[in-house]
Computed example of a mutant assay.
Amino acid sequence: MSTDIDPNIDRLLKRDSFIERGARSRAQALLDPGSMRELAGPFDRLHSPWLAMQKLVTQADDGVVVAKGKLDGHPTVVLAIEGAYQGGSMGEIAGAKIAGALELAARDNRRGIPTRAVILFETGGVRLQEANLGLASIAEIQSAIVDLRRYQPVIGVSAGTVGCYGGMSIAAGLCSWLVLTREARLGLNGPQVIEQEAGVAEFDSKKRGLIWGLTGGEQRVASGLADACVADDTDEIRATVLRLFARGVPARHRSERADHYLACLRRVDTREQATPEEVRAIYNPIQGDA
C-alpha cells in the first residue's frame, strides 16, 4: 500500500484558514507585519447605547475593527466586521466607524496620501434593533465607498460563515473589486427571509446546495457579480487582494453597468426556480475576470 500523501490533502491540512480567524486577526493578517494600529478600538468603549436600552449585551468595539497600517508598503485601512457579534449587523456605532474611516481615507487622498481600503464583509446587514439608525449608517458607508473609489481601489472580501446580506451586500457591490471564498454567500436577502416572505416553494432555506448554487462565492464570480473566488487560505486571500490593488481602479465599476444587469434581470423567468447554470447564462458576465 502506498504511503504517499495526496498533495491536495497535505495543502489543506497546512493552510491557514481565514474563516476561522476573528475580525481583528483577519485585519492583522492582511496588513504588513508590525504595521497595524487599531483606531476606535475596544478600550475607547464605543458600544451601542441602543442595545443596552433593550437589555442586550453590548461589545466595546460594536463588532467592527478599524485597522490602519501598510499593505505591501502602501497606506491602507482595513475595516473588519465581526460576524460572531450580532451576526455582523450594522448599527449606529459600527456603521459610523466604517463610514468615518472611509471618509478619512478619501481625505488622505485629497491631501496627497494615497490611502487604500479593504472591507471584510461578514454581515447580515442592518441591525434590526437599531432600525433607521442602522440604515442611515449603511447609506453613509455606501456614499463613502463611492467617494474613495475615485482615488484608490476599494476591495471587499467576504469569506464566511455569515455571508454578506442586506444593505451591506449593496456596499459590497459598490466596491472596486470583490473577493469571495467558495464558502461565502452574497445576496440582498438571506434564504430564511426569502422563505418567510415568499414561501418555501420560492426558496427552501434548508437546501444548502440550492443556496450555495445560487448565492455562493463560486456562482457569484461565474455570474460576474464578484471578481475572484479563492480558497479559504489567508496567504491566498492576501495575495489576491494585492493583485487586485495592482490592477488599480477599474475603467468602469460594476455599479456603473446598471443597464447590463437590468437587461439580465428582464431575461429571468420568474414562473419557475432558475438553476445555477441558467443564472450564469442569463448574466453572461462581461469578460475580464480577476
Rank of each mutant, 00 (worst) to 15 (best):
V200M: 14
R37E: 15
A246M: 12
E38P: 00
L225A: 07
G100H: 09
D10E: 15
K55S: 14
Q196L: 12
L214D: 01
A27E: 10
V78I: 14
E202G: 03
G213P: 03
T58H: 04
E130V: 05
G173V: 02
R116N: 08
S48P: 05
G224W: 02
A246G: 12
M36K: 06
Q54M: 12
G63H: 01
L262I: 11
A106K: 05
G209E: 14
D44M: 13
R26W: 01
Q192V: 06
C175V: 07
A274S: 13
T115K: 04
A131W: 09
A84E: 15
V200N: 12
F43Q: 14
S255F: 15
K206P: 00
Y151N: 08
A222G: 04
P153Y: 05
E82G: 08
D227W: 05
G163F: 02
D6T: 05
A251V: 12
D147T: 13
A139R: 06
R107T: 13
A231F: 05
G34F: 09
W177E: 06
R24L: 11
R45K: 10
D62Y: 04
E202T: 13
S89G: 11
D4M: 12
A117N: 05
F121G: 04
V193K: 00
A231T: 10
G69E: 07
D62L: 03
I286G: 07
H260T: 12
A228D: 09
I170C: 06
G95W: 01
I194F: 00
L188H: 08
A251Y: 04
R11P: 00
V77H: 04
G248V: 10
D269A: 06
E130W: 07
H253V: 04
V57S: 15
V157C: 07
A60P: 09
R150Y: 07
A96G: 03
A94S: 15
G213Q: 06
